[in-house]
């Protein structure tokens, strides 16, 4: 475990979360054009877990990067396993990626869906944005109705 000391685990949000491992000592120094790194607010949970959040823009891509100390992350994972993990199951909850209004609902609770199938449409900035199933499964619960207003991150439905 001690070889992880000083190592960082970084997670980058996206359609699939990616994890990176970095040792600051192994990175070459950069001369010029170092991108700006902006600290983001942390929740109480973040602080308790020693998780920090940053944002940086590379080649125009805006990344939200979650950073934690690798040994601490490993400990947290071990503790989490006993409680049934949870990381996977959480991704079955489909959340709004954009604030707007639900204008269509193509599925009902109990429907079987294929990966990529249209579930609902959210209208924002005058465009309808289709939300599709991230996996094959069954629509377990639907938390919105047609015409519901949703905020970024609101849970829309669960596909398991």
């Amino acid at each position: 475990m001690s070889d992880h000391r000083g190592h960082l685990r970084l997670r980058i949000a996206g359609s699939d979360e990616e994890t990176f491992h970095r040792d600051p000592a192994e990175l070459d120094a950069v001369r010029g054009r170092e991108p700006e790194v902006r600290a983001l607010p942390r929740s109480a949970d973040d602080r308790a877990a020693g998780v920090h959040r940053f944002e940086t823009t590379i080649d125009g891509w805006v990344f939200e990067v979650t950073v934690e100390d690798e040994p601490r992350a490993l400990l947290r994972e071990k503790a989490g396993q006993g409680a049934g993990g949870g990381g996977r199951a959480a991704s079955d909850h489909i959340k709004a990626q954009i604030p707007g209004r639900v204008v269509r609902l193509w599925v009902a609770e109990g429907d079987t869906v294929e990966a990529g199938q249209r579930l609902l449409a959210i209208e924002a900035m005058k465009m309808e944005n289709e939300v599709r199933a991230h996996r094959a499964g069954t629509v377990e619960s639907i938390r919105v109705d047609p015409d519901s207003s949703v905020e970024l991150g609101d849970e829309l439905l669960t596909v398991r």
Partner: peptide, 29 residues
């Protein structure tokens, strides 16, 4: 770009630390 974002954040953390840690420290981004 994500690989380079991980590098940039790592360098930032190594140079400046993790940033705010107190309960009041939640400034606007």
């Amino acid at each position: 770009a994500a690989e380079r974002a991980a590098d940039a954040v790592t360098r930032h953390v190594a140079a400046a630390g993790m940033g705010p840690s107190g309960p009041e420290a939640a400034p606007s981004p």
